[in-house]
Amino acid sequence: GPGLTDLFKTEKAAVKKMAKAIMADPSKADDVYQKWADKGYTLTQLSDFLKSKTRGKYDRVYNGYMTYR
Rank of each mutant, 00 (worst) to 15 (best):
L46N: 00
G1Q: 13
T42E: 04
T42P: 02
D6A: 08
A24E: 09
K20D: 11
D25W: 04
Y33I: 01
D25K: 03
Y65A: 01
G40F: 03
L4P: 12
D25T: 04
D25M: 04
G56W: 05
W36I: 01
V15F: 03
A13Q: 10
T44Q: 14
D31R: 10
W36Y: 01
L50M: 03
F8A: 10
R55S: 12
T10K: 15
A21T: 09
K20I: 08
L50C: 02
D30S: 10
Y58D: 01
V61H: 01
Q45S: 05
K20N: 11
D38L: 10
K17Q: 09
F8E: 09
P2M: 10
L4R: 09
K9T: 05
W36A: 00
K39W: 10
Y58I: 02
T44K: 12
M18N: 06
S27I: 04
K57T: 05
F8C: 13
D31A: 13
D31L: 10
Y68I: 02
V61M: 03
E11K: 04
T44V: 12
G56C: 09
G3N: 13
K51A: 09
K17L: 11
K16L: 13
G40L: 04
A13T: 07
M66A: 14
K51P: 04
M18E: 14
G1V: 13
N63P: 02
V61C: 02
T67E: 14
A21D: 08
S52G: 10
D6P: 12
L46V: 08
T54E: 11
V15W: 02
Q34D: 04
V32M: 06
T42F: 02
Q45D: 09
D25S: 04
Y58K: 00
R69C: 14
T44W: 09
G56I: 05
K51H: 08
N63K: 15
G40N: 07
K20S: 08
T54D: 11
M23T: 03
P26S: 07
Y33S: 01
Y41G: 00
T67S: 13
L43C: 09
K57L: 08
K17M: 10
K39A: 13
D30E: 11
G56E: 05
D48L: 15
A37L: 15
M23E: 03
Q45K: 07
L4M: 14
K51T: 11
V61I: 12
G56M: 04
L50F: 04
D38T: 10
T5S: 11
F8R: 11
W36C: 01
L4A: 13
V15R: 00
D30H: 14
S52F: 06
Y65I: 01
Q34Y: 05
K16D: 02
D25V: 03
D6H: 08
D25R: 03
K17E: 08
T10A: 14
K39Q: 09
G64E: 06
L7H: 15
V32W: 02
V32F: 04
Y33K: 01
K39H: 08
L43D: 05
A29V: 03
D38F: 09
T10V: 11
Y65C: 01
G40W: 03
T44L: 12
L4V: 14
A29D: 02
Y62A: 05
Y62H: 04
T67W: 14
A14N: 11
K28P: 01
N63Y: 15
R55Y: 10
Q45V: 07
K20Q: 12
K39C: 11
T5D: 14
L50W: 02
Y68F: 12
Y41A: 00
Y58N: 02
A37Q: 08
S27V: 04
K12W: 04
K17A: 13
L46E: 00
D38M: 11
M66Y: 07
D38S: 12
F49V: 04
A19L: 02
Q45C: 05
K9L: 08
F49Q: 01
A37F: 15
S47W: 13
P26V: 05
G56F: 07
D6R: 05
T10Y: 10
K16V: 14
K28D: 03
R60N: 11
D31M: 11
M18R: 03
Y65G: 01
P26A: 06
K17R: 13
G64A: 04
T5G: 13
L43P: 10
N63L: 14
G3D: 14
S27H: 06
M23H: 03
Y58G: 00
K20V: 06
K17G: 07
K53S: 10
A37T: 09
L43Q: 04
T10G: 09
K12F: 04
A37Y: 14
V32A: 06
V61A: 04
I22T: 03
Q34T: 06
K20F: 06
K57V: 07
T67F: 12
S52L: 04
F49S: 02
K16R: 15
A21E: 15
Y41L: 10
D31T: 11
A19F: 02
L43V: 07
V61D: 01
A14F: 09
R55M: 10
Y62N: 03
D59W: 14
T54I: 11
